[in-house]
Amino acid sequence: MTRFNQCMKALKRLAAAVCAAACVVTLAACGTDDEAGKVRIGIKFDQPGLGFKKAGTYVGFDVDVARYVARKLGYSDDQIVFKEAPSKQREAMLQNGDVDMIFASYSITEERQKAVSFAGPYFVAGQDLMVRKDDHDINSVNDLNGKRLCSVTGSTSAQVVKERFASEVQLMEQPGYAECATALFSGIVDAVTTDDIILAGLAANARGRLRLIGKPFTQEYYGVGIKKGNTALARRVDAAIIDMEKDGSWQRAINDNTRGVTYKPNMKYNPPKADLGKTGEKA
């Protein structure tokens, strides 16, 4: 091997080491060229009221919190790159460096904390039920025996109902909550179950045809997913969340994204104090 080739290889190794070091210090430092200097944030694209892709824009409570935090971290809106973060892919996206943070109705659990770290929580949801507006046969989770219940494939929400409240409930699984809402509209199922803020977004999108029961029976602590061990970023995100709660932006985001539906977060738990130690009741 010539001395020239040896030098070139040494320079390449040096460049790779410098880039790797920069990735540790700054967010998205070594992403693709069009992502350089930007922050990459995972959100849901299919949850009205939380994370929803609409005509090329992104709306919802999770999106509003993500934008607020990103601004506090020094990023303008045009430096935010939103990426879809399906539930089953969230841990892998953080571990692989595909995103820097995830705001996607991401409940903090002990099991997930083995793979990723969390900032927050920034919201405490509760599992609830949604029914047709004119249906008054179901007034609590205890009224579900013999009824048809819809939830999303892979979700533990329906199993929680079956195991703890209504062993004779008939379960239907769909790929998304929009499909569950459609099944509820058409009378194929009698109720839909998941976190109350997700149901509130679906009900708001239904323009009064669906309603929440309003009796949540779990607590789900929504956190900001970050790469395992990045405590410095977690502290900065926590500080931003606290500022959002203090200056009224958190409450405005709740109001804006649940407009048109009777829904209020459980004020016993909300707004939550950012605390890495909190965990939710289910994955």
Rank of each mutant, 00 (worst) to 15 (best):
A203K: 08
V152M: 14
T231G: 08
F118M: 01
Y177D: 14
D34C: 00
R3T: 00
F52R: 08
A206Y: 06
A183N: 12
L11D: 10
K44Q: 13
L184P: 03
A253T: 07
K133T: 15
V131E: 05
F61Q: 04
Q47A: 13
A104S: 10
E84N: 15
K228P: 07
K44C: 06
G37L: 02
S105C: 07
A239L: 04
V189A: 09
S107N: 09
K9Q: 13
I80P: 10
Y177L: 14
F52I: 03
F123G: 04
Q251W: 11
E111N: 09
E110I: 06
V192Y: 09
Q95A: 05
V63L: 06
R132P: 05
M8R: 01
N230R: 15
F103H: 02
G280T: 01
R209Q: 15
K227M: 09
L129G: 14
K54Y: 10
I80W: 06
R259N: 05
G214C: 02
A232H: 03
A274R: 12
A203F: 05
P271H: 09
V224H: 05
A70F: 04
T32V: 02
G51A: 01
Q95L: 02
V59H: 08
R13N: 13
V237G: 05
G31T: 03
Y221V: 00
C30S: 07
N96D: 12
D128I: 00
N270I: 07
G51T: 12
P175N: 06
I43M: 14
D196L: 07
N139S: 04
P86I: 01
A183K: 15
N145H: 08
C180Q: 09
T194R: 11
G248W: 01
E91W: 00
A183F: 14
T109G: 02
V261W: 12
E35W: 03
D256N: 14
V169C: 12
M130G: 05
P272T: 09
D190S: 10
S186A: 06
E281P: 02
A16M: 12
A239Y: 04
K282Q: 14
Y222T: 03
T109W: 05
G120S: 09
D34E: 07
G277C: 03
R259E: 04
D243V: 09
R236S: 10
K282W: 13
A191G: 12
A234T: 11
A115Q: 15
C150I: 08
D195F: 14
L14T: 14
E110R: 15
V25Q: 01
A92R: 14
P271V: 01
G154K: 04
R252S: 07
G74V: 06
G277N: 08
A36C: 00
L212K: 14
A125V: 07
R13V: 10
G154W: 11
K246L: 06
Q127R: 11
A274P: 15
A239Q: 14
R13H: 11
P175Y: 04
Q89V: 02
K54V: 10
